[in-house]
């Protein structure tokens, strides 16, 4: 295999609080290959967004990356000074957020913001920058892009705003885009349009994509590989088809079985018992053991990462190869 675009090794991001240290991301390792679409799945509080923020160096203090390495195209990002990181962010790695209003300034026109984003990294004339902005809007399927450059964010619908955010991310043809729940707030038909565009653009520009989502359905439709996070750790990873057809980790299986379509109509659903543990009071060993039906005494020890071909999991009782 060629060199991965992103190589994260033993990454830990902690937030010190008065009541103790929150290990939002705890010894997480994964790689993203060239042109690969990786889905990062987990429930709220699992650390999936913080993982994305950590890669971009956007973790707000007092939180910080305490250990581990993030290598982007062979370059170590964790030790990089702010200025050098700024040169990469938006240029070679871009991010798309759930709420495009977080990305867009409400008092500046779309054109002004996009020209600014071009000029932040490239020394080109304003006309040239504006042309690039216009082309980017056209690429993501915004009709009459020339006129829309003069519009303000509130004049766009939710789906169109998300397209603008994607266009901004594409301005510099990044090698990697990290997308944090970008379609969660959108309606089904609009979500489908955005997924379609993203998939097409990723192929066209040979971009790698990390797609953070709580929706296994979306990840199943989009991603090549899936990472499942629980309580700050990646508990399972592998090709989407394999993981979803034969989940090794009981948590992955639990997530799949909790979806209404997993049981016949009208029958009781099968939720995972209990709740995700508070990040301040995670059980020792496997943090899922309190909710796990397969748990035994051995689970109070730390499960190591088992690797079998292109799949990996952290569990003493994986469903090795057997269907659920």
């Amino acid at each position: 295999m060629t060199q991965p675009v992103l190589e994260v090794t033993n990454l830990s991001t902690h937030f010190p609080t008065r009541r103790g240290v929150i290990k939002a991301v705890d010894e997480v390792s994964f790689t993203v290959g060239q042109r690969e679409i990786v889905g990062l799945v987990g429930e709220s509080g699992s650390g999936k967004s913080i993982t994305g923020f950590s890669v971009l160096g956007l973790v707000d203090p007092p939180g910080r990356v305490v250990s581990g390495s993030i290598r982007f195209q062979g370059e170590e990002l964790t030790q990089l000074p702010q200025k050098a990181m700024r040169a990469i962010r938006g240029k070679r790695i871009a991010m798309i957020f759930q709420d495009p209003m977080m990305t867009l300034n409400p008092v500046l026109s779309i054109g002004t913001q996009m020209v600014e984003a071009v000029l932040a990294h490239d020394r080109v004339s304003r006309t040239e920058a504006r042309n690039r902005a216009r082309d980017a809007l056209g690429m993501v399927g915004i009709p009459s892009p020339e006129e829309r450059l003069d519009a303000y964010p509130h004049q766009f619908s939710g789906g169109m705003r998300q397209r603008v955010a994607i266009a901004i991310a594409l301005l510099h043809r990044p090698d990697l885009i990290i997308a944090d729940e970008p379609t969660t707030a959108l309606d089904v038909t609009i979500q489908s349009q955005i997924l379609y565009e993203i998939k097409r653009l990723a192929q066209e520009f040979s971009m790698a994509l990390v797609w953070i989502s709580h929706d296994l359905g979306v990840v199943a439709a989009l991603a090549d590989r899936v990472l499942v996070m629980y309580a700050g750790r990646i508990v399972e990873a592998g090709p989407v088809e394999d993981v979803l057809s034969q989940p090794a980790h009981p948590y992955t299986l639990g997530l799949m079985q909790a979806i209404p379509s997993a049981v016949p109509r009208g029958e009781p659903l099968r939720p995972i018992p209990g709740m995700a543990p508070s990040p301040l009071a995670r059980p020792s060993g496997c943090s899922f053991r309190d909710r796990c039906q397969r748990a035994t005494e051995i689970c109070s020890a730390e499960p190591r990462l088992d690797i079998l071909a292109d799949r990996e999991w952290r569990c003493f009782h994986p469903n090795e190869g057997r269907a659920a």
Binding site: S192, Q193, L195, G217, A221, E241
Partner: peptide, 15 residues
């Protein structure tokens, strides 16, 4: 257009 884990589509045909 409802994404689903049982029905893996690689292409989207949005309305």
């Amino acid at each position: 257009e409802l994404p689903s884990i049982s029905d893996r589509r690689r292409d989207f045909t949005p309305v």
